[in-house]
């Protein structure tokens, strides 16, 4: 009897040790996965999760703060990733933080890296969805190997997104109202336009003065007024004039358009016909696009004209007919300079 009691005690010790080890292992593994203890659920939406699996780590500013709980496909391009984050970390994550799927090290496990947002943002609450970016690939990482590159990649992604949205003319009201890019673009264009117009105006004035002086001086040049060369000049002038007229028209167009857009936005603000605007909106954007491109082409033409004019003037300078005249001009200018 004594023997069997001692035996049972040792057996009990054995069983308890084994079970305790197993329980400890389960506990530690669970703890590492934030399965136990206080964690809150957050969500992030991705297009491509690059083989992320439940149980992969969540990293925030380099700290492991939780693990991926669930991955579910909502539609063909939207994958919702649910993950747990330790409660004591939660207040430090801002709503403007970004989630990105990267590899841990060069060839390690996939992790969800949460990049901190600006400190002005509000803290996330349990159940919030964090913004996400497409993952930076390992090979890219290998070529750049720096945080800066990651940032650059993010920037590029952002730019790409904006550009894509603009070019595809997605009718998002918010982007039209909030996004200042298009207006800035337009303003810039108008500014350039004005600049060019001023420049061409100056050129025109100069040219006029030249022609007038040619008229006044009864020299050899004057007698040659009706020959081919001046014809070219005249043609150029006509061209310029036409361009200017066109330019003015374009300017009017742009002005009208902006007015139109303004009034539309005012309409929206007033709450009038939002749906109407939405259905009109793509057309509007196309219109703007169209205008911008025609503006572009107009500018190109003006530029061309300017270049041609310059060429003509240069040709005039080099022509032996006008050599003397130009030299005289120079001398007179030198005299004036000497007198002064």
């Amino acid at each position: 009897m004594e023997k069997s009691v001692a035996r049972n005690i040792r057996l009990g010790l054995f069983v308890i040790t084994g079970t305790a080890l197993l329980v400890a292992a389960v506990y530690f593994v669970g703890q590492k996965q934030s399965m136990f203890g206080n964690s809150s659920q957050l969500y992030a939406v991705f297009h491509d999760i690059n083989g992320l699996r439940p149980g992969n780590n969540i990293r925030y500013s380099g700290i492991n703060v939780g693990s991926v709980k669930e991955i579910s496909m909502v539609s063909d391009t939207i994958i919702v990733v649910r993950f747990g984050v330790k409660n004591d970390i939660l207040p430090h994550i801002r709503k403007n933080a970004h989630a990105i799927i990267t590899t841990d090290g060069l060839v390690g496990n996939m992790i969800v890296n949460i990049l901190p947002g600006s400190s002005s943002g509000l803290a996330v609450k349990a159940g919030d969805t964090i913004m996400s970016f497409a993952r930076v690939r390992t090979d890219e990482m290998l070529t750049t190997l720096s945080v800066t590159n990651e940032n650059a990649a993010l920037l590029t992604a952002e730019l790409l997104k904006i550009t894509r949205e603009i070019s595809s003319g997605k009718g998002v009201i918010g982007s039209m109202i909030k996004d200042t890019t298009i207006t800035t673009d337009l303003k810039e264009t108008i500014h350039h336009l004005r600049h060019t117009t001023e420049a061409s105006h100056a050129t025109l004035t100069k040219l006029n003065r030249l022609i007038t002086s040619l008229d006044k001086n009864n020299n050899i040049v004057g007698t040659l007024r009706d020959t081919t060369l001046p014809v070219t000049i005249r043609q150029t002038l006509a061209n310029l004039e036409r361009s200017s007229k066109q330019l003015v028209k374009v300017m009017d167009n742009v002005n009208g358009l902006i007015g139109n857009a303004d009034s539309t936005i005012t309409n929206i603000r007033k709450g009038e016909g939002a749906i109407n605007f939405l259905s009109n909106d793509p057309v509007l954007v196309t219109k703007i696009d169209h205008t911008v491109s025609s503006l572009d082409s107009a500018l190109m033409k003006i530029n061309d004209a300017g270049v041609k004019l310059n060429e003509n003037l240069e040709a005039l300078k080099h022509n032996w007919f006008f050599k003397g005249y130009f030299k005289k001009l120079e001398k007179e200018q030198e005299k004036k300079a000497g007198k002064n």
Binding site: A25, F28, V29, Q31, K32, Q33, G55
Partner: peptide, 18 residues
Amino acid sequence: FFDEVFLSLDFVDLIPST
């Protein structure tokens, strides 16, 4: 060492093998 061990271990490793 054991941090690494438990970090790399998963329930997928632990439960089926037990």
